[in-house]
């Protein structure tokens, strides 16, 4: 496994919150307020992401669930006007600390996007991209095969590794992107609606894959598919939109074990959302 971005012991002893939540919390995310320019996108959202679990974020469109996910590996830093108050502790260390380089964070916390986004190059080069970024000295071919096997894509592409990644089907492309993300053995894998551009069969495959991958990686996933969250997620957070101040600010309504959240929600909002009364 990898080590955290700097010489940190990772035992969380310096931070009370992480210590309280226990050793198995890999990312302790606590967003007090999050702005894009003057737009307040998210407030009061605290989500602990546990090791070797799948944590799902659900909620209506525009509730900020993708924004929250992108906070976890500082992808939001690429948005002009992004401002963040709160903390995101990765192994007890705040990734928003001044001394931390966002690029380094993203090497330890991988990401899979809504649209399959393979590079316009060969399958092999796609998977090897992260390895080369990290100046990996070992056998690239070996690592590529391993990643493709773990992404359940090896058998379909082993004879055409030189073909363009764009020549694959949508579902295969998404698994290629997963292989690309896990080739460098990141500790955490963030998935932003990874199945929303795929057909049901491809979706099924990705879900099976997620369940296999969680043995090695910690996964956080955003989905608008409630059944998907029910099928794969150990924990689920439900976010909702607050329009009372005139804006559209997302906030966490309820967080807990998926089974409890779906079968016996504590909050009225959660209840009406999962029973399909609004989307």
């Amino acid at each position: 496994m990898t080590t955290p971005p700097s010489g940190q012991t990772g035992n969380g002893s310096t931070n009370g919150a992480a210590a309280l939540l226990g050793q198995d919390v890999v990312i302790d995310c606590n967003i007090r307020e999050l702005f894009y320019g003057t737009f307040k996108a998210v407030r009061d959202t605290a989500i602990p992401v546990k090791r070797n679990n799948i944590t799902a974020f659900i909620g209506p469109s525009g509730c900020g669930k993708s924004t929250v996910l992108r906070c976890l590996n500082r992808m939001n830093d690429l948005v002009r006007g992004f401002r963040f108050e709160g903390h995101v502790l990765f192994r007890g260390k705040d990734i928003y600390a001044r001394s931390i380089d966002p690029v380094a964070v993203r090497r330890y916390i991988g990401m899979v996007f809504q649209q399959p986004n393979p590079f316009a190059t060969s399958i092999l080069n796609n998977v090897a991209f992260g390895l080369r970024l990290n100046r990996y000295k070992g056998s690239i071919a070996e690592r590529v095969e391993q990643a493709l096997r773990r992404a359940a894509l090896w058998d379909e592409v082993k004879d055409k590794l030189g073909n363009s990644g764009l020549s694959l089907s949508g579902g295969q492309q998404q698994r290629l992107c997963i292989a690309r993300a896990i080739a460098t053995e990141p500790e955490v894998l963030l998935m932003d609606e990874p199945c929303s551009a795929l057909d049901p069969i491809a979706t099924r495959k990705i879900e099976e894959l997620m369940l296999e991958l969680k043995a090695r990686y910690t996964i956080a996933i955003v989905t608008h598919n409630l059944q998907q969250a029910m099928r794969v997620a150990d924990q689920t957070g439900f976010l909702y939109v607050d329009t009372t101040e005139g804006g559209r600010t997302g906030y966490l309504v309820e967080f807990g074990a998926s089974k409890e959240l779906f079968e016996a929600p504590r909050e009225a909002h959660t209840k009406s959302y999962i029973s399909g009364q609004f989307s």
Binding site: V103, R106, R107, F113, N117, P118, R180, T184
Partner: peptide, 18 residues
Amino acid sequence: VPPRLRMAAYGLGATRWE
């Protein structure tokens, strides 16, 4: 160039020049 390719590279921990 589709923006999602840029995001993919950044998501893998590439620097701006990379």
